[in-house]
Each structure stands twice: as C-alpha cells, then as structure tokens.
Design a protein around this nucleic acid. Structure first.
Lengths: 197, 197
DNA sequence: CCAAATGTGAAACTGAGTGTCACTGTAGCC
DNA sequence: GGCTACAGTGACACTCAGTTTCACATTTGG
C-alpha cells in the first residue's frame, strides 16, 4: 500500500555498493575480457559473496550497463524541456546534447566503456535491448509535446527510433576513431542524413 | 585449403533435420512458452539427443530465428537489383517488398512467429542483434550502388538503419493488429515519416 | 531494549552451452 | 564385396549463470 518509497539512507548505501561493484567488475572485464571473468571472480575481487553480487545485479551484463541506465530517461527529460514549437527532428537532436556532453567531459572513461561494450557481443546485445526501449519512450514524449493523443503515430515512432539510431551510429564511429572525432559533429552529420537530399 | 564447399547431399540432409527440429521446437514454444521449454524437451519431442539439438543450433533461440536468417541477405540482394538511378530511400523501401510478400503469402504462420518472438524477451533481443547487422550490410550495398568507395558514409549507415527500423516498427504494429492491417501500407507510412513535413 | 525488517553468505538446484569419447552407419576406394 | 575413413549421434562430465532457500547478523524504528 506504500508509495514508491522515497530515497532513504539505505538506498544511498545500496547505490554506493552497486557503484563499487560495477567499478571492480569493469576493471576486471577490461583487463581479462568480459567472457573470461566469472561472477565469482568479481565478487572475490570486491570482497563479497557471489550471492551478494547477484543481489545487486540481475546479470553480469547489468554491472556494466548500469552506467547506461537512466540515459533513456535523461534524453526523454531533455526532449520534454525543448520549446513547444520546435520541429520534432531538431528537438530530438538537441535532446541528445546532455548525453554527449558526458562523452566530452570524460572521453577516456567513455571510450573505455564503449569499447568494452562494442567489442563484447553479450554487452552489445543488452545495450541494443535497452536502447530499443528508448525509441517508444521518446515517441510518447514527442506525441505529448505536440498535444496529440497517445499512443504515438507511426511517424513519431519512426523518427524517435531513427534519432536513437543516429546516436548509436555516431558513437560507434566516434569509438572507432579512438575518440578523436567530435561526437557532436558526427551526430549532426547523422541527423543530416534525412534533411539533405 | 578447400574452398567454401559446394552444396552436397550431406548439407541437404542437414538442412532438413534442422528444419524438422525447428518445427518441433516452434510448436512446443508456442504451446508452453519459450522459457518453459528446455532443450532436452525439444530434443525428446524430436526423438534426438540434447547433444544433437545443440549441434544443429548454437542456442535455443537459434531454433526459432533460423526462419529469420537469410532475410538480411535477401533484402541486400533486392536492393542490389534496384535501378541504378533510383533514390536511396525509395530503393530501400522497394527492397523490402520481397520480404513482406512472405507475410502476405502466409499471414497465419508469420503472425504466430512474430508473436512468439515479440513476446519473448530473449528472442526479441536476438532478433535485434541480427537486424543490427542488416543496417551496415545494406549501407555497403547502397554505397556500392552509388559507385562510392567503401566504407559507407554516415549518411548511408543512418538511412539503411532507419529502413530496417521502419520494417521493425511496421511489423510490430502489424502484429499488434492481429495481422489485420496491411503491412505494405504500414511500411509506406513508416517510410513517409521523413519525406512528409 | 526489543522486534521486525533488511543485508549477507552458504548451499543446493536447474538449465544453457562446451568438450570429449566411443559407437555406428555410410561413402568412397581398392 | 570388403575395408577404411569419416560424419553424425548419444552419453557423459564439466563450467558457469541465475534462482531459491535458509540461517545468521546488523540495523532501524518503536
């Protein structure tokens, strides 16, 4: 009967432990390869039991993709904040700015993370899965923004999904360039694929 | 030192057994749910050992997604066959025609398959994974078609990926409508998301 | 200070996927 | 026709992911 439980001391502790485990896991994965490291290895390195690790993460992949969680929400939030009159496509592009700002602020960490994910099929797959959920969420926001009734029209779904795609492709190329290319430029170029003839 | 081995009697037998196993597996999955059925169940129902099943399919998911394999190649082939002067976006749309023809020809089977896949997270994920590979492949074909040097420009990658997205979204909605809506119309509408303002 | 809730570790269990080995039928060859 | 080489199969053992259960400790709120 209780509501969705406000953030308590416990939740903070939980988040801290989770972050610590993710950190340890990430370093092991990077050093030895995701598939070579077992959950027990990570648990041992972090000084907890296998049980505990699995209580914090539903799977080995989650320990890495924790960093990606909430990005979808972040983009949706940014999209909601765009001016009402703005064109869909422009709004979607601008909604990605806060996200790529993170890459600009900490290129080394972001590069290591994306490399690990892109090079590991299991992680790439889970990321795709998560991102597949962003499309519909952004489409709902687009529809809401335009004052149209839900569910979203095909048009919104397609555009939102395409925006996510642009992000994926731009990050892919950015990673391929070793972080040397400018992610914002790449994104602009990707988004221009439909506006230029 | 041998080349890629021409199709032999053995390969045909292998394909037949594979199809048979896939058929048995599909029926069990549909009846009891993908997660409820173990590989041993399928093997037993098909009258082979678990080992044999796993020799034909790298995973449980593969037994279902065998039906999807080669679709990427099919679309790439159709794209290559489009007239040279044709606009990218139109060519991509038309390249999907042979694929959706299959849905039109056998709606019941296609519907059962897509439902199973869309309702099962593990299968949906594997499908996404496969489809993620189609984008770059189509982009290469687009680039080739235009007489441009590889690798594909961002523009081609984005457009090709968007086309695959349109397919996914249209099929999604088609499935949601119980197969009552026309898939070709849905695809046209999806593709129009960028050409209409 | 006590009782309930929560975090942790230990352990058993299921099922996926890998690898090995011995057996069997068949295909090609002499 | 008989022999050999090999591919397909089944049995088995193994590792690891992920789930569940239970007992114990710690923290928290009354």
């Amino acid at each position: 009967m209780n509501g969705p439980a406000r953030t308590s001391t416990r939740d903070i502790a939980r988040a801290a432990v989770q972050a610590e485990l993710a950190q340890v896991a990430f370093e092991l994965f990077r050093r030895d390869g995701f598939d070579q490291v077992t959950i027990s290895d990570v648990a041992a390195a972090a000084g907890v039991s296998r049980s505990t690790f699995l209580r914090y993460f539903g799977s080995k992949e989650e320990a890495v993709l924790l960093a990606v969680d909430g990005q979808g929400e972040q983009v949706a939030g940014a999209l909601r904040a765009r001016p009402a009159g703005e064109d869909d496509w422009t709004a979607l592009r601008r909604a990605l700015d806060p996200l790529i700002e993170h890459y600009r602020a900490e290129p080394a960490g972001a590069l290591a993370l994306t490399r690990l994910i892109l090079e590991t099929p299991a992680l790439r797959s889970r990321l795709l899965e998560k991102q597949a959920g962003w499309g519909p969420a952004l489409a709902r926001t687009l529809t809401e923004r335009a004052g149209l009734p839900q569910p979203p029209a095909l048009r919104s779904l397609v555009r939102a999904a395409a925006a996510v795609n642009c992000l994926t492709i731009a990050v892919d190329r950015w990673t391929g360039s070793g972080g040397r290319l400018d992610l914002a430029d790449l994104l602009d170029e990707a988004f221009a694929a439909f506006t230029t003839r």
